[in-house]
Computed example of a mutant assay.
Amino acid sequence: MKSEDSKPASGFPITRMRRLRYHPAVRSLVRETKLTPSQMILPLFARPGKGLRQPISSMPPHCQLSVDLIAEEAREAAKLGLGGILLFGIPSEKDGCGSDSYSDNGIVQQAIRAAKEAAPDLLVVTDVCFCEYTSHGHCGIVDDHTGRMDVNNDATLEIIAKQVVSHAQAGADMVAPSGMMDGMIGTIRSALDGAGFHHLPIMSYAAKYASSYYGPFREAAESTPQFGDRRAYQMDPAVAAEQALRECELDLAEGADMLMVKPALAYLDIIRAVHEKFPGVPLAAYNVSGEYSMVKAAAEKGWIDERGVALETLTAIARAGAKIIITYWAKDVAKWLA
C-alpha cells in the first residue's frame, strides 16, 4: 500500500492550465509582467540648426533633430506619459577632448534648456560621454601613455566632472555616464555634490558591453571611432556575469543611484543576475539601436509583425528584471498600449 507522500500530483483532467488563458481578461489578470509608458525612456539626438530633421537611415523614422524640434519631442513625450527622454548631442565642431560636451552653450546644454522649457515636468536625462563630441570618436582623451593609442582613464575623469556639472547647470534631472571609465561614478558624485547638486541622481551604464549591436547608433550619433575600437574599456561579451556584478557593486559603492545593462536583448541573463544581486536598486536596460533596427528591417520586408515583436522583446527585458527601459519604441509603445 502506497503512502500519502507517494501519491502523484493531480493532473489532467483536474488540472487544466488553459483555464488561465481562455479569456483575454483572465490572461491580463494573471499577467505578472506589464509594460507601461512611464517605464520607457526615449533617446533623442540633438544637433545645431533650426527646423532640422536629419533622417537616420538605419533607424527609421528616427532623426537627428535641431533644438527647436527636441522641444517638440519633449512636449509629445510628456503628453504620452513617457518616463523621460535621454539626450545625446552632435556638435557642429569636434576636437580631441570633446569640449562642446562641457560648454555652457554646447548642443546638449541647449537641448536640455529647450526640453525643460517645453515640458517642465518631463524627466530629462543626459548621456555623459565623449564619443559624439571628439574628433577621434573615442569616449575620452586619447594618448599613447601605455605604448599604444588608448583612452587615458584618469585624464578623462577630469573632463567628465566638467561635463556633468554643465549638464546639471543647464537643467538636467539625471545624468547617465556611459564611458565605462574606472572611477567615473565617484568623480561624478563628487563634482555634482561640490557644485550643489546633491539631489541629482546618477544612472550608471554599469554593465556596458563592447557590442556589435551599436552599429546604427554610431550613424545616429556620428561617433564611429576613427581608429581601433572600444574593447579596451567596454566589457567583453564573453565574460561571465560575475564581472558585470563587480562593476555594479563598485558603481554603487561610488554613489550610483540606478544601474543599467546595455545592450538588453542579448544580455537578459546579465539583467536577471543584476536584478537578483541588487533587488532594491532601480535597474534600467538599454534596448539598443541594433535590436531596434533588425526588427524594423524585417518588418519592412513583411517577415515579422513589428508591433508584436517589439512588445514581446520589451516584455522579455522587463520580465528579466529591468524596471526602466530605454528604447526607440517608447512613443510607439505608449500609443500601442493606449
Rank of each mutant, 00 (worst) to 15 (best):
S3W: 06
D5G: 00
F12E: 09
R19H: 04
P24L: 02
P24H: 05
A25H: 02
T33E: 05
M40Y: 04
P43S: 06
L52H: 02
R53N: 01
I56D: 05
L65F: 01
D68N: 06
R75A: 06
A77F: 03
L80F: 08
L86D: 04
L87M: 09
F88W: 04
S92N: 07
S92H: 09
C97S: 09
C97L: 12
S99C: 05
D104S: 15
N105F: 00
I107S: 04
Q110S: 10
A114W: 07
A114V: 10
Y133W: 04
T134V: 08
S135L: 07
G140R: 02
D143C: 05
M149Y: 01
D154L: 09
T156E: 00
E158K: 10
S166E: 11
A176V: 10
A176W: 01
P177N: 08
S178E: 01
M180A: 14
G183D: 00
T187A: 11
L192N: 00
G196D: 08
G196E: 12
L200Y: 05
I202F: 00
M203V: 02
M203H: 06
Y205F: 15
S212P: 01
R218Q: 13
A221G: 15
E222I: 13
E222A: 13
P225R: 02
F227R: 09
A232T: 15
A240S: 15
E249D: 13
A253T: 13
E254Q: 15
F278N: 13
K296D: 02
D305E: 08
G308H: 13
A322V: 15
T327Q: 04
T327Y: 00
Y328N: 03
V333Y: 05
